[in-house]
Amino acid sequence: METIWIYQFRLIVIGDSTVGKSCLLHRFTQGRFPGLRSPACDPTVGVDFFSRLLEIEPGKRIKLQLWDTAGQERFRSITRSYYRNSVGGFLVFDITNRRSFEHVKDWLEEAKMYVQPFRIVFLLVGHKCDLASQRQVTREEAEKLSADCGMKYIETSAKDATNVEESFTILTRDIYELIKKGEICIQDGWEGVKSGFVPNTVHSSEEAVKPRKECFC
């Protein structure tokens, strides 16, 4: 089977250590919580890489390049270098760990500093929502923070797969819409958005090519 997608997006996943960034990505890309043989993902060293195709509309596939980052302070100088080549990102906090929520603004501030005057499209993710009894951050205050910062908010669980697929779909669609509006463009040498492989059928080609023309206007 020939792989067919119209765009490739590079996304970055950031947040404090142990909030569950890697588990979220494992669940999304491999469809499983790594619990059969081991209870958790290895702690990330530097950055890790995942990839998956996502169909946002019938016949429209986007290839996602996903960069997982180590949340420890010591790795920050490595991981922050990846912001510049990302078009979007997930900002993950742990709803059972209030401090990780309080650091959300710090993460945003850092990302902004490294990509200005451009911006990364972020989705705020409240992770580990299966642990409701240990919740320390209410949905309302998280939604307020995300609205103040210009992000959407979603709560997920890698353990029971709650909203995992939805979170990636939401962010990918938002980026796709911005590309169609011309607010985000394909640029030679920039890895954030790349055009993909399209078959020769007229309909698909036209759909894929049209937004690019708009971008260059």
Binding site: T29, D42, T44, V45, G46, V47, D48, F49, F50, S51, R74, F75, I78
Partner: peptide
């Protein structure tokens, strides 16, 4: 994106 790939990636970045 295989497990071996992930392990190698981590090893390559483990010098620090």
């Amino acid at each position: 994106t295989s497990a071996e790939g992930a392990h190698l990636r981590a090893r390559m970045q483990s010098a620090c």
